[in-house]
Write a protein that binds this DNA or RNA. Structure first.
Lengths: 149, 149
DNA sequence: AAACATAGTTGTAAAATGCAACTATAGGGG
DNA sequence: CCCCTATAGTTGCATTTTACAACTATGTTT
């Protein structure tokens, strides 16, 4: 369990490289959305009745930021906000038709990038990798932030 | 090589959790520095004759940002900027005495966090994990940004 | 010497972020 | 039923981060 390079360094640097790769791919295809937006759309797509507070908890972000991010996604026509019938404070988020379309495109491009980046890595290695990631996430103790799928 | 969760999502989310964990640890110990600053100090410590351009390349950051980040580290008394004798454009960065001290502290706390987060992960799993990370970084094709150590 | 390239700095504007105050609604205990 | 507290969301504001372009100074090439 010794690491010569700090885990934070390792992950942070890798993430930065991967993000650049994805953003380059998006630019190539004239996609104007950011990684953050893709990830938010992904979450909304997977969690049908998600509220903004859910998003804030999951992504460890202030809820004010979530409000604004959702606002821009609504302005872009990709997301709808509907009020909960039982609890009038809550607002549920879901993708519009256009939102589903753009998400499918974003996801396809994301898969392309993933495939490129995982080149030369065996299924076994990848499975182990994902297990380690999962354990790390568990060890952070942020229970609400676990992968949802 | 199938991933149900996009690699970008997986890494990004994990990184966010790990960063929060580290920042919490820093706060506990009344350390006012950020993860970015720790990582910059780490790089300077490892690469004795590094220039600001090297930093910009390594971290995929605009050199103007590097200038300002270094400025604040100099103001804090942790970094020195010395001019290259041969090439007067270049300025080399190195840690001051106080910089080395604070870096050792940051690193120690970083190791604590890493140890907590890697709990329950075998040496073999970790080695494989690091190999996969290394391959991913290679596959991004950003040669200047490889891990340096 | 002229033209171009590189290292670094600075100005400025845009975007992301965090915090606190605020509204509106829900739920619990007296 | 009223009061107190908690939750969901919005808004304002100040701080930080970031990108881009212009600029200076120095080095390199032809």
């Amino acid at each position: 369990m010794k690491t010569q390079v700090p885990l934070t360094y390792l992950l942070g640097q890798t993430m930065k490289l991967v993000r650049h790769k994805l953003m380059a791919k998006y630019k190539e295809n004239n996609i104007e959305l950011t990684l953050e937006q893709f990830v938010v759309l992904h979450y909304i797509n997977q969690n049908s009745a998600s509220t903004q507070q859910d998003l804030a908890n999951h992504f460890l972000r202030d809820k004010s930021i979530v409000t604004r991010q959702i606002n821009t996604l609504i302005d872009l026509g990709y997301v709808m906000r509907t009020q909960d019938d039982d609890d009038k404070r809550k607002k549920h988020l879901q993708l519009t038709k256009a939102g589903i379309e753009i998400f499918e495109l974003l996801k396809a491009k994301s898969v392309e990038v993933s495939t490129e980046l995982l080149d030369g890595i065996s299924q076994e290695e990848l499975t182990n990798f994902e297990n380690v990631i999962a354990k790390i996430q568990l060890n952070t103790g942020f229970k609400d932030c676990l992968m949802c799928c």
